[in-house]
Design a protein around this nucleic acid. Structure first.
Lengths: 381, 381
DNA sequence: GGCCTTTAGTCCATAATCTGTACATAATCC
DNA sequence: GGATTATGTACAGATTATGGACTAAAGGCC
């Protein structure tokens, strides 16, 4: 077990920089006086900390603010979107994506390259991704933004900087390093999509994000942070048991959710989600039946998930987002009936607000979060 | 969202006291020099902090320690079990329990009062418990121990100091306050049993404790802390869906784990777990069949739990502990087969080391943990 | 318009805490 | 018994936050 380190003078200041920046970030622009009130520090200390943050370019003074009725107006200090930014990257089965996000969580650039990455060559694909990253960073530079870190979303399990297993890409134990010459992180697509929903979907701080892709995953956010489990493998909703002796699944189990509600099952012979939506809109009975079955299975799996994870709400994303009108009924009915006597009401069931960009935005947002949480360490203050 | 407070001089010292005490607690007795090494503080600072902790009575000097081969030997500083202690309390369906634990997590006193608490009168039972608590605190005082806080384990869901729902007691929305004139907390029995296993069972820091009682619950410990979910309701393993259209359960669902592996189902007409164990030992086919079915259901529910929670290992406790020899096979087989292609190996399956005292010990331990984590706040340093 | 009140932000002397070097202490090694 | 090595303490110095005094800038009131 790791013993935490003692607080020294420099770490005290580092922490206070983070506290002030965090207060600005969480509850919008504030005057120095308001920040002092919020943080419990004195006005003097806050002034000194804000001076450092101004110099680092992470905050700006944003004109005069009339606080109460009387007295000298204060100067609002807010996050600066003009100098520091981060890069989000994504490898998905069908495409590569990149985006640049500034400190205010405004999306400044976005690029997508369609590709068929099933059973692709890792070295070649990573070279492609490196090119995309470099282009995007250069464009951000041309717009005056210094990209100071990057994160990558992948459809698989991750340990450190190694992609352990991505069944739909056909990859195992691929070490992803040196992709960019910046602080770098990799994470699972469902986890980052959940964080994307948190930071860019203007969600509450507590929800379970259900990521419907080729596989079905989920990311649980509690009090604004992601739950990862012991080995970082938590949230594998796709393999929750729905029917104990159902059809075999690639995981070794039987009757997993993915068998009933994975993209391949939903689409059948169709070649896109929009094709399925057309069929559903025109009342095609086979499509409706498939969707109802998937919704029922999702209701069963989510019941188990609610009992175990206790999420604040449930957000359906990925391919489940466009199918929401047809899934909502069966899922909500299943949850409502099965949770009837355990809770006053089941968690609210809503649709994702940010669609397919969730993961790549979450990747960029993760680095933003790191800047906010440890500005001194990241920016060298 | 609450903004965290800035670090001031006094909170810096408070934090460093906690860091030093935590290091002593986690990795056994240490000399001041070793503590300086561990915490990153200087020897001078550590000496000063240790002096405060000595004065507060939470640590003692424990004789001379020969560190390396040469040089002046140091004085080991270890937790003191002689002055400060905490009280654990438990209301269960069949009994009331109390225990006093000192800072070294040694159990100093233990009391149990058998009772039939099903559908009992809350006011009367709490009065009974208050008496038990007072007696136990007085006895601890006679042994020179100052009890500085208490916690209560209950078989139900808890919010703040209110017991929201305890179906097997027949209680709803009972506010438990003024039970003792000390800092006080209540928590769910499965949660506290998990923490009991963590602190008194000499377990790893990562596991899922499965609490088999009248109801089936679970407490997940990740990196030495308990996962509670958004509303504190996480870990309701008993209502994970095993068979989606199985028999109705009191929760409103169908085919929940509790229907197959709850104590009432396991015992049937028998009146105690030991009676069931006798039958099993003598090869009674009906008992063996019931147990095999429960093991199979537990394997299915735990598969879903492993996918969602990603526990480091699985510990079977409560009534599952004496039944472990008959449950282990079916549970391990189920987990092994269903997780075959997802992990190198399924989480280890082991039996609880501390038996039925887990929850009451966890309750006392929780207050100990609070002293270790914030000594300055709790002890007024 | 002038003065009072109120609030924002800065200045500077002071206080709290940790650091780092020096030193006394106590053991082993040879 | 002297050299070496390590522990723990003392004291001056460094870092950071505090708190009261002060300047700045607005509205209220007469």
């Amino acid at each position: 077990m790791v013993t935490s380190r003692g607080v020294r003078h420099d770490s005290m200041r580092a922490r206070n920089l983070a506290v002030v920046l965090g207060a600005i970030h969480r509850s919008g622009p504030h005057t120095r006086a308001a920040l002092a009130e919020l943080t419990g520090l004195t006005k003097t200390t806050v002034s000194s900390l804000v001076a450092d943050l101004l110099e680092a370019g992470v905050v700006t003074e944003r004109g005069v603010v009339r606080g109460g009725e009387r007295g000298r107006p204060g100067v609002a200090v807010s996050l600066s979107g003009h100098r520091v930014a981060t890069l989000g990257l994504e490898i998905n089965v069908d495409y590569l994506a990149a985006c640049v996000v500034d400190l205010t969580r405004t999306v400044r650039l976005r690029r997508t390259r369609p590709a068929d990455n099933r059973n692709s060559d890792p070295a070649h694909l990573l070279q492609e991704l490196r090119g995309l990253a470099k282009e995007t960073i250069d464009d951000a530079g041309a717009a005056g933004l210094r990209v100071i870190g990057a994160a990558l979303a992948v459809p698989g399990t991750v340990e450190g900087e190694t992609l352990r297993s991505a069944p739909h890409l056909g990859w195992r134990d691929i070490r992803v390093a040196g992709l960019v010459d910046l602080p770098f992180a990799i994470d699972n697509e469902a986890n980052l999509a959940a964080l994307g929903e948190l930071w860019f979907g203007a969600r509450e701080t507590d929800f379970l994000y259900v990521s419907g892709e080729i596989g079905v995953g989920a990311g649980l956010v509690v009090a604004g942070s992601l739950f990862r489990g012991t080995f970082g493998l938590a949230g594998e909703l796709g393999h929750v048991v729905v029917v104990p002796d159902g059809p075999a699944c690639r995981c070794g189990g039987r009757g997993c959710l993915e068998v009933y509600a994975g993209q391949d099952t939903l689409l059948g012979a169709l070649d896109s989600v929009s094709a399925l939506v057309s069929r559903l809109e025109s009342g095609d009975p086979r499509a409706l039946e498939t969707c109802a079955r998937a919704g029922h299975a999702l209701g069963v799996a989510l019941t188990s998930a609610v009992h175990l994870l206790d999420p604040g709400m449930i957000v359906l994303g990925g391919v489940f987002a466009p199918l929401f009108p047809w899934l909502e009924g069966p899922v909500a009915d299943g949850l409502g009936a099965r949770l009837a006597h355990m809770r006053d009401s089941p968690p609210a069931l809503v649709v994702s607000k940010i669609g397919p960009d969730a993961a790549v935005l979450g990747a960029a947002g993760m680095i933003i979060q790191r800047i906010i949480a440890e500005p001194a360490e990241v920016l060298g203050l």
